[in-house]
């Protein structure tokens, strides 16, 4: 591993690479990993990357992350790669792309949006820009930036 940091290969699980430096903790938050689940988790932060300068890496044993989790990760780590590992080999390379529509995961920042005011309201955002990420509420047109998304995930 780069910079001499040694993290051993995992047998089964998920490796998330090319996370922007400093956002590995947010990735763990998206995945609901608090540390008491019993999975072995390796977290590497601020290592050099040819592609993005500095990066974070997360390795989780005995857990295959699902597509919804993958989509959420792209919102804060658009260039991340997700590899599913089986018996020490890469069994699946997840093709990540920022979703066109994000339903029910994020909250509209407009307190007067109907989605925040009716018990049946479900938030829905469409991506209007992928670089930088801008999501727009389908109901009230209020926008969320990548920072807003990150703030929501970390809050």
């Amino acid at each position: 591993m780069e910079n001499g940091l040694i993290v051993t290969k995992i047998k089964d699980g998920t490796v998330i690479d090319h996370i922007p430096a400093g956002r590995a903790l947010a990735v763990l938050k998206i995945l609901g990993i608090k540390g008491n689940e019993g999975n072995r988790v390796a977290l590497v932060m601020n290592v050099d990357s040819h592609r993005i300068g500095k990066k974070d890496i997360v390795k989780i044993e005995e857990r295959v992350i699902n597509n919804v989790e993958s989509e959420l990760i792209t919102l804060i780590a658009p260039n991340a790669t997700i590899n599913i590992i089986r018996n020490y080999e890469v069994a699946e390379k997840r093709k990540l792309r920022i979703p066109d529509i994000v339903v029910g995961i994020l909250k509209c920042q407009n307190p007067l949006c109907i989605t925040n005011n009716d018990p049946e309201g479900i938030s829905k955002f469409s991506s209007v820009s992928k670089v930088p990420i801008v999501l727009k509420c389908d109901y009230c047109d209020t926008e969320l930036t990548e920072d807003d998304v990150l703030r929501q995930i970390l809050s």
Binding site: N110, L112, C113, I114, T115, N117, D118, P119, E120, G121, C137, D138, Y139, C140, D141, T142
Partner: peptide
């Protein structure tokens, strides 16, 4: 009563609903 239930009643009683509401996006909802 929430907006959704109010609208469910009104759609049963009419052919078209005209709505004004204080919340942004209420008409789409």
């Amino acid at each position: 009563e929430n907006l959704a239930d109010t609208i469910r009643m009104m759609e049963n009683y009419s052919d078209c609903i005209v709505i004004r509401h204080k919340f942004d996006g209420a008409a789409k909802f």
